[in-house]
Amino acid sequence: MRLTMIHAALMAVSLLFTSTAADAQPKGARVKVNGMQVYYEVSGKGEPLVVLHGAYMNIPTMGAIIPKLAKTHKVYALEFQGHGRTTDIDRPITYQNLADDVAAFMDAVGLKKADVFGYSMGSAAGLQLAIRHPEKVNKLVAASVAYDIQGWQPEFREFIPKMTVEMFLEMPFAKEYPKLAANPKGFPELVKKLIQLEKEPMAWEKDVKALKTPVLIITGDADVATLEHSVAMFRLLGGGGPGEMGKPLSPSRLAVMPATAHTAVISQSELLHAFIEPFLKGQTPKGFFETP
């Protein structure tokens, strides 16, 4: 009897660890969205969190932040039009189109509403998702985002007209593209669409000001968006006022990563997670005027 109980206990522990390990492994699948076969991976348990990558990226290049978030959330990481394992279609890549794709993806996988974390192009797509489909977004984390093309650094704006397909064919990620791509020869066409995306006006100030969705803006102090623009966006969302002066804090937040250029934002998973997790959980630091 005692051996049976011990055996049963060992089996239960074994199953627990097997289940935990299985849950931790991302499960990949494809779903039809707006004429595309969209590839996505689901990992973790908890409240749903949709993760949106940047331009020329895919799920693997988002790095360690996805498994960190999957420890406390059920993460749905998808790959955008023409990126990673998702097919391309005869349609421009615009932030509005990407946002509509995410909304349709959520419908296709049965997600009525979720938190959203986007980086770079994914953050602008997430912002448009909150603007165009506010009923689908609980909270938005937008890393390296802008709401107006004037918010980009002057040097970057001057560089946009000089962008060519040939220039991007020399980039390291051009050689990596065929390894995952549904169409291994589709990179030049993707580059054409993404260069055109950079020229989008992005005049969304009124839309941002009207948002009711709480937004965490994360920016590097040497990011492609200026610090002034990030602060202006935070103020549009109701932030930037004095705390401890009788008014509640804004539900939106601003976090600045020190000594951080654009591509270094996503590589600092520990710091990113330290910003994202308290925001999604609604936790705020307590000052010494507050009762513990």
Rank of each mutant, 00 (worst) to 15 (best):
residue 22 A to Q: 14
residue 126 G to E: 07
residue 20 T to Y: 03
residue 38 V to Q: 05
residue 244 E to M: 15
residue 4 T to C: 01
residue 91 R to V: 05
residue 260 T to D: 00
residue 227 L to M: 08
residue 240 G to W: 07
residue 89 I to Q: 11
residue 36 M to R: 10
residue 237 L to W: 08
residue 217 I to R: 12
residue 66 I to V: 15
residue 245 M to N: 13
residue 42 V to C: 09
residue 138 N to C: 06
residue 102 V to H: 04
residue 205 E to L: 07
residue 136 K to H: 11
residue 78 L to K: 06
residue 218 I to V: 14
residue 159 F to C: 00
residue 91 R to T: 06
residue 286 K to H: 13
residue 96 Q to L: 03
residue 85 R to T: 09
residue 251 P to Q: 11
residue 291 T to H: 14
residue 12 A to S: 12
residue 168 F to Q: 10
residue 182 A to K: 10
residue 40 Y to W: 02
residue 94 T to Y: 00
residue 188 P to E: 01
residue 78 L to Q: 02
residue 81 Q to S: 08
residue 65 I to M: 03
residue 111 L to R: 00
residue 285 P to V: 11
residue 82 G to F: 04
residue 163 M to Q: 14
residue 132 R to A: 13
residue 135 E to A: 07
residue 15 L to D: 01
residue 30 R to I: 00
residue 260 T to E: 00
residue 66 I to C: 10
residue 145 V to E: 01
residue 204 W to S: 06
residue 285 P to C: 02
residue 147 Y to F: 09
residue 185 K to F: 08
residue 83 H to Q: 09
residue 47 E to I: 01
residue 181 A to W: 06
residue 253 R to V: 01
residue 127 L to V: 09
residue 202 M to F: 04
residue 225 A to Y: 02
residue 287 G to P: 07
residue 85 R to L: 11
residue 28 G to L: 11
residue 247 K to R: 11
residue 289 F to R: 11
residue 60 P to W: 06
residue 92 P to A: 04
residue 103 A to D: 13
residue 84 G to H: 08
residue 139 K to S: 13
residue 87 T to H: 15
residue 184 P to K: 09
residue 223 D to T: 03
residue 285 P to I: 10
residue 261 A to V: 10
residue 177 Y to E: 09
residue 16 L to T: 08
residue 26 P to H: 07
residue 89 I to K: 15
residue 48 P to A: 04
residue 264 A to M: 14
residue 42 V to Q: 14
residue 121 M to K: 01
residue 17 F to V: 14
residue 64 A to H: 12
residue 32 K to D: 09
residue 190 L to T: 00
residue 140 L to F: 08
residue 71 K to A: 15
residue 213 T to V: 14
residue 127 L to E: 02
residue 135 E to I: 03
residue 1 M to F: 03
residue 91 R to W: 05
residue 291 T to D: 10
residue 273 H to L: 13
residue 109 V to A: 05
residue 283 Q to M: 04
residue 8 A to E: 12
residue 283 Q to K: 12
residue 264 A to C: 03
residue 157 R to I: 04
residue 184 P to S: 14
residue 108 A to I: 06
residue 70 A to H: 09
residue 208 V to G: 10
residue 129 L to G: 08
residue 130 A to P: 03
residue 125 A to K: 04
residue 240 G to Q: 12
residue 63 G to L: 09
residue 21 A to P: 10
residue 273 H to E: 15
residue 125 A to H: 01
residue 34 N to Q: 01
residue 112 K to N: 14
residue 195 I to Y: 06
residue 74 K to T: 15
residue 8 A to V: 08
residue 60 P to Q: 12
residue 275 F to T: 11
residue 162 K to E: 13
residue 106 M to P: 12
residue 82 G to Y: 08
residue 62 M to R: 07
residue 198 E to W: 02
residue 99 A to C: 07
residue 68 K to N: 12
residue 273 H to S: 15
residue 84 G to K: 10
residue 65 I to D: 06
residue 76 Y to V: 04
residue 148 D to A: 02
residue 244 E to A: 15
residue 286 K to W: 02
residue 198 E to V: 03
residue 177 Y to K: 06
residue 113 K to C: 08
residue 196 Q to M: 13
residue 61 T to C: 01
residue 102 V to Q: 01
residue 130 A to S: 08
residue 157 R to Q: 13
residue 118 G to L: 04
residue 208 V to R: 04
residue 84 G to E: 11
residue 171 M to E: 13
